[in-house]
Computed example of a mutant assay.
Amino acid sequence: MAKRGARRTTAYDSTQPCPCGSAEPYGECCGRLHRGETTAATAEQLMRSRFSAYAVGDAAYLLRTWHPTTRPARLSLEPQQRWTRLEILATDRGSLFDTVGTVEFRAHYRESGQAGTMHEHSSFVRENGEWVYLGALPSAD
């Protein structure tokens, strides 16, 4: 979803629908996580907030929610890439009571006028009471 390098930021109105696909405004949904007012309660909520971070250009949040053993030193978001829609395809564990979980998703984007998708089965762990992204699981394809 991104390259290593400098941070990109995009102005995003907190009253607009949240990019994660919930019915809530961004400011009351993923915006609260991005601002550090709360943390994700489940692996799926973290996945949704990370998608939203890509959509609004919040590289700092992406790095903060990445497991330290797999986190890149820096992150550069592609300025011409616009993340437009998230589909959660499946979840396994990752609830309030779990310490591990996986989320399979399809993320839709537009780049240089062309539509594209990214499909990933992501692994999450809870460390010190907070969910973090560990990485993509190997594809069965």
Rank of each mutant, 00 (worst) to 15 (best):
G31K: 02
V100H: 06
V132G: 01
T84C: 10
E127W: 05
Q16W: 14
F51E: 02
C30T: 05
S76C: 10
K3E: 15
R85Q: 13
L63M: 12
T39E: 08
T69I: 10
H34K: 06
T99L: 08
A2D: 14
V56T: 12
T91L: 05
R64K: 14
S95N: 08
T42A: 01
E78S: 13
T91C: 10
T9D: 14
K3S: 14
A107N: 05
E127Q: 14
L46G: 01
A136S: 14
A2Q: 13
R126V: 06
L75W: 01
F105D: 01
G94E: 04
Y61P: 03
V56F: 08
H119C: 05
R64P: 00
Y109G: 06
L137V: 07
L89N: 09
G129L: 10
S52R: 04
L77S: 07
I88H: 08
C20V: 10
A11D: 14
R48G: 02
Q16K: 15
L46K: 01
W131E: 03
R106T: 11
V56M: 07
A53Y: 03
Q114H: 12
E87V: 03
E37M: 02
E87C: 00
F124E: 03
F97C: 01
G57R: 06
D92S: 11
G129W: 07
S76V: 02
Y26S: 09
L96W: 00
S49K: 03
S112A: 13
V56W: 09
S76F: 00
R48H: 06
P68R: 14
E120P: 01
G135M: 06
Y12G: 10
Y26H: 08
E127N: 09
G36I: 03
T38N: 04
T70I: 11
T102N: 07
G135L: 06
L134K: 03
A6T: 15
A73W: 01
A23G: 15
P79Q: 12
D98I: 00
W83C: 08
A23Y: 05
A23H: 12
A60P: 00
G36L: 04
F97V: 05
T91K: 05
A60I: 03
Q114V: 14
L63E: 11
R106N: 06
T70H: 12
W66C: 09
W66G: 06
T15E: 15
T38W: 00
Y54V: 05
V125P: 00
T42Y: 00
Y61Q: 09
G21T: 10
Y133W: 07
